[in-house]
Design a protein around this nucleic acid. Structure first.
Lengths: 109, 109
DNA sequence: TTAACACGTTAGCCGTCGCTAACGTATTAA
DNA sequence: TTAATACGTTAGCGACGGCTAACGTGTTAA
């Protein structure tokens, strides 16, 4: 029942989404990129499917998973809503300050 | 032990970060915007603090929480790394398609 | 047809999450 | 000083997350 952003935030699932940019793939193919079992990956995919971030097609005894563009559009909206201009300004300023300090730690009056 | 993006993705904590853009606030002040107890909010803040997204200052018997700009910069990097150009392109296309279909459902040969 | 196999999912086990109730602690009022 | 009070955190509970092991099911080979 969680929302798409929460589901997508989990590290393994983030990677899965990135892997699926390359095109549809089976559970076993996807599993090769991880150190956990097929079962674990399968469950991550089912969860992603439940929030419509991916969709699946069955062929033979394999299930081919792919990104669901409309769900990804929803996610885009959520991300944009969370990481708004205010937060961005704040983070950018912090980065700028850090950058200006890091190179030469001397001469900061 | 989770990473900043996962921690920030939880809905209550997302709202807390947004509220803190307005400036430092105590646990009780922040709690007023939610329907859960002070305790729950306190624990969310402690978690945010553990991944350096917020910092706290003690004054009298209150703890004033504020955003930690450097942690927010880290989060910015994580978000940017996750929501990269490929995903954005995909989501944008889906949005464009949906928009072009939604207004006039007729005449789609 | 049936035995072996490949693929994906369910069963079940901790660990962690998010929450309220109870608590400790610091401040104020008498 | 002591009692009352306001603030934040810990204790403890039910539910959920991520994982492996066991399983069901569909496919191939004999």
């Amino acid at each position: 029942m969680p929302d798409a952003l929460e589901v997508a935030a989990e590290p393994t699932r983030r990677r899965l989404l990135h892997l699926l940019v390359a095109g549809e793939q089976t559970v076993t193919e996807l599993t090769e990129h991880f150190s956990v079992t097929r079962s674990a990956i399968s469950q991550h995919l089912l969860l992603l499917e439940s929030v419509r971030l991916v969709a699946a097609r069955k062929d033979g005894r394999s299930r081919y998973y792919r990104l669901d563009p409309s769900g990804m559009a929803t996610l885009r909206a959520l991300v944009g809503q969370f990481w708004n201009d205010e937060l961005d300004l704040l983070a950018r300023d912090a980065q700028r300050l850090a950058d200006s300090k890091d190179p030469q730690p001397k001469d900061t009056p």
